[in-house]
Computed example of a mutant assay.
Amino acid sequence: MPSIEQTIVTYPIVESFHSVQGEGYWTGTNAFFIRLAGCDVHCPWCDTKLSWKASRHPQQSVIELGKLAASVNPAIVVVTGGEPLMHDLTALTEALRAHSLQVNLETSGAHPLSGQFDWITLSPKTFLPPKPSIYPHVNELKVVIANPKDLEWATLQQSLVPESAFKYLQPEWNSRQSQKLVFDYVLQHPEWRISLQTHKFLGIQ
């Protein structure tokens, strides 16, 4: 049974939904998404700017979120944002893991790590760089590429994550130039893979 303290822990939620993971290592996997509100990274090409201001979104308890996730029997639960680590995620991950769910995190790493995760995807941004403490915990590095300087940033980030981490370059969605940059770079650097936003190609959430 959840403790009294746990039942009153809430988070600002932009949306939660059942779909498939569209990006990176887990592409095509049955997934339940929890999109937390609040972000101070403010990427200019962000496709979820509605998530930036936490006060605009309703609060939901961790008990509700755990039940919602478990009800669709997903292979993974993806905690994303916004920037989810703006919040202490301990109570949320406890509630999800109580249902024996695999819990994945998508983060820029700009805030201290909290919560217990089975998989951490780091998508570092130059606008607000990651905290050094996140790097040892990274399972997957995913760098969005909009221009050639982003490739230099990707190389730096590669040197900081564990050697075992999967490494992905993801073209900025609206830029054909970035698609070519990523394609050409991966052909020359076999340690990297291409990540595409397949959910956008499929027209799904």
Rank of each mutant, 00 (worst) to 15 (best):
P2R: 02
I4A: 12
I4T: 07
E5K: 15
E5G: 14
Q6A: 08
E15W: 11
S16H: 14
S16R: 05
S16C: 13
F17E: 07
V20I: 15
Q21S: 01
E23R: 03
W26H: 08
T27K: 06
N30I: 11
A31H: 05
F33C: 01
I34R: 05
I34M: 06
L36N: 06
G38Q: 08
D40S: 15
V41C: 00
T48K: 04
S51I: 10
W52I: 14
K53A: 07
R56T: 08
R56D: 15
P58N: 05
Q59V: 12
Q59R: 11
Q59E: 13
S61Q: 10
S61W: 07
I63N: 15
K67Y: 09
K67W: 06
K67A: 02
L68E: 04
A69P: 14
S71P: 09
V72T: 14
I76T: 09
V77A: 08
T80N: 05
T80L: 14
G82M: 11
G82L: 02
P84V: 06
L85I: 12
L85R: 09
M86L: 11
D88E: 08
T90A: 00
A91T: 14
A91F: 04
L92Y: 07
L92I: 14
T93R: 06
T93N: 11
A95D: 10
A95H: 01
L96I: 10
H99G: 05
H99C: 03
H99A: 07
H99N: 10
H99Q: 11
S100A: 09
V103F: 01
V103S: 01
N104F: 15
L105C: 01
E106C: 05
T107W: 07
G109F: 04
H111R: 15
P112M: 05
P112Y: 06
D118T: 14
I120W: 11
T121G: 06
L122M: 01
L122S: 02
P124R: 04
P124N: 05
P124T: 10
T126Q: 11
T126I: 14
L128S: 11
P129G: 00
K131E: 02
K131Y: 02
P132Q: 00
P132S: 00
S133L: 02
I134A: 03
Y135I: 04
P136A: 00
P136Y: 01
H137P: 03
L141C: 12
L141M: 09
K142I: 09
I145C: 02
D150Y: 06
D150K: 05
L151Q: 04
L151M: 03
E152N: 03
W153I: 13
A154E: 01
A154S: 01
A154Q: 03
T155W: 10
Q158Y: 15
Q158K: 13
Q158D: 06
S159H: 05
L160C: 01
A165Y: 09
F166C: 05
K167I: 04
K167A: 06
Y168F: 15
Y168I: 12
Y168T: 13
Y168C: 09
L169A: 13
Q170F: 10
E172G: 10
S175E: 08
Q179P: 13
Q179L: 08
L181E: 03
L181M: 13
V182G: 02
V182Y: 06
D184M: 03
V186N: 04
V186R: 05
L187H: 15
P190Q: 06
E191G: 05
S195L: 04
S195Y: 05
T198Q: 10
K200Q: 12
K200L: 15
